[in-house]
Write a protein that binds this DNA or RNA. Structure first.
Lengths: 162, 162
DNA sequence: AACTATTCCTTGACTAGTCAACTATTGATT
DNA sequence: AATCAATAGTTGACTAGTCAAGGAATAGTT
């Protein structure tokens, strides 16, 4: 972390005014937390010359197994929209981490698979990524983690939890 | 929301495999939640031809009062780094929402203030923004909101909560 | 006073993300 | 079969974010 670790949210804001509402406070806390987590993991990926987003594509591909996945399906498993995924795949293919071929059965689809290099890169990152994740989320006990995930779910789908 | 609202995290992922770890599940939930919140508010800002990020700069400036703020101080109150803020200010100034002047006392600083137009735009957005925020976070009771903020704090500063 | 260091901000060169428009292929309909 | 619609993906034109390098002004030092 770059900023002094003793800083808390209210200090970070450096505003004397209280938050306009708890919701806004929570919103800001969410933004800042995700930003911080992104920074922590980006640092890891950067050492291997891939971005965090590129890494996420690789992970999705590994999760899919040897058969590979069409581009749109990758996008579906990620936060990004299709065009972004296409561009990420462009870069990953250029680096030799991913292989793309037109699907025989449906020539509209492009099947993406990990190359051996890609698989090795992922393997090399597994340890550090897990450590980093443990360090960040280790601050919460298992039940707390569960609660957090539930809260986030409810924020995303408010109409399901009236 | 664009995707079917009955989808839950496990469905979104469309993976049969369980999560490698709770931490990873929480991490993904965080990313997706922030992404979704960003989308919801971006839609509001877009109607007034400002981006969410530009809006955040305007809010910081309003919070600072009539005196205005130097660029670096704005960055300090936001998630972004300085260069990003400079560029956001470029665009806001071009739209006539913000005014910039070199500070007399310290000519290194650039004092930024809201224009009347900027202030009106913010006022027009206050209602919708608050509504949207209530809708999202209304899914949590006040104590739960508080707990959420605490958890997020702990994730950001794990060493403070061993 | 003259140098050096620091601070504030901007710029350049990159990555990434969005929407909208387009191509290619497939499927469905008449 | 000929058309029309839907799907998969790419590209263009934009916004935004990063780091690293640099200019300008100020502060500190000798």
């Amino acid at each position: 972390m770059e900023r002094p670790t003793t800083q808390r949210l209210r200090d970070e804001l450096r505003q004397t005014k209280p938050f306009p509402s708890r919701s806004q406070e929570a919103y800001l806390a969410l933004l800042r937390t995700v930003d911080e987590l992104r920074r922590r993991s980006s640092a890891l990926m950067g050492q291997h010359d891939v971005s965090l987003e590129q890494y996420n594509v690789l992970r999705v591909l590994r999760g899919a197994g040897a058969a590979g996945l069409p581009t749109l399906e990758i996008a579906g498993r990620m936060v990004e929209r299709q065009p972004g995924v296409t561009r990420l795949l462009d870069k990953l293919e250029a680096k030799g981490l991913v292989h793309r071929v037109r699907c025989k059965e449906d020539r509209r689809q492009v099947l993406c698979t990990l190359t051996e290099t890609g698989r090795r890169l992922l393997a090399a990152l597994d340890g550090p990524v897990d450590e980093s994740s443990q360090r960040s989320f280790g601050a919460l006990r298992p039940e707390e983690l569960e609660t957090l995930v539930e809260y986030l779910d409810r924020i995303r789908y408010p109409e399901l939890y009236p």
